[in-house]
């Protein structure tokens, strides 16, 4: 029954109007990424998921302020800039989530007493913003050549009132959803690096979302790989 329902939806998604170029069930929006588009930062990337777009710039490993210096590893800093107005508490919280995720994969011990700064600029928000921030940060870190033990990606899942699962939700879907879960997964074992959630859900639903996010992460990592292959195709 459940499977049949899904199949129906998929069909309706494929014939959907051009204005919403994506079905309501289990597909990722179109992805686009451009690396090395800024001249000043050591690494930069612009990541687009549907109409959501984030620009990331990475400086480092570079000189660090004495007050922030850590003797045995690099100091990682993440700055998230909203498009309208000044950064608030929500941005601080996201900065911290992104920073801790980066810290888990960046091999900071190779560059002690330096700073690695990731600056994220929201260019447009059309849902799954934190996931897009994470993806942009990862691509920018790769572009800057910062050593990492694994790549990471962000995936958002939304659960609507009937318990249907939607991957990579748009703003509208996020608003209608009963719960929205955002995960960061690593590329080696698809382990959960970061998670933050909104709304109420059961443990079974959590496990389903995680499994779906792990499946989606395979697509994202393939996108990363193909985009880097293209980039380094000419030497």
């Amino acid at each position: 029954m459940e499977v049949a329902k899904r199949a129906d939806r998929k069909v309706s998604a494929d014939t959907g109007a051009e204005s919403s170029p994506r079905g309501p069930v289990c597909s990722l929006r179109h992805f686009a990424c451009e690396q090395n588009l800024l001249s000043r930062p050591d690494g930069s990337a612009s990541f687009l998921q549907g109409d959501t777009s984030v620009l990331a710039g990475v400086y480092g490993p570079a000189e660090v302020k004495v007050s922030k210096e850590i003797f045995n590893k690099a100091t990682l800093e993440v700055i998230l800039r909203p498009k309208i107005g000044l950064p608030g508490v929500a941005e601080k919280s996201r900065e911290r989530l992104t920073r801790n995720t980066c810290e888990a994969v960046v091999l900071g011990a190779l560059h002690p007493r330096t700073s690695i700064t990731v600056v994220l600029q929201v260019v447009s928000d059309a849902g799954s913003l934190l996931a897009c921030c994470l993806n942009a940060a990862c691509m920018a870190l790769v572009d800057a050549g910062v050593p990492m033990r694994a790549l990471f990606c962000g995936v958002s899942c939304a659960l609507d009132a009937d318990g249907n699962l939607v991957l990579d939700p748009t703003t509208k879907q996020e608003k209608e959803a009963r719960a929205v879960l955002t995960f960061a997964l690593d590329s080696v074992e698809q382990k959960l690096l970061m998670s933050t959630t909104k709304g109420l859900y059961s443990d079974a639903e959590l496990q389903q979302c995680l499994a779906a996010a792990q499946a989606a992460s395979q697509h994202i990592f393939r996108f990363y790989r193909e985009s880097l292959q293209r980039r380094y195709s000419k030497s």
Partner: peptide
């Protein structure tokens, strides 16, 4: 060559319930 695009991709989520 620094830019890359991917059209929308459908994710196979048929076995997530069993996995969970």
């Amino acid at each position: 060559i620094t830019a890359f695009k991917m059209e929308k991709a459908s994710v196979d989520t048929s076995n997530i319930e069993e996995k969970a």
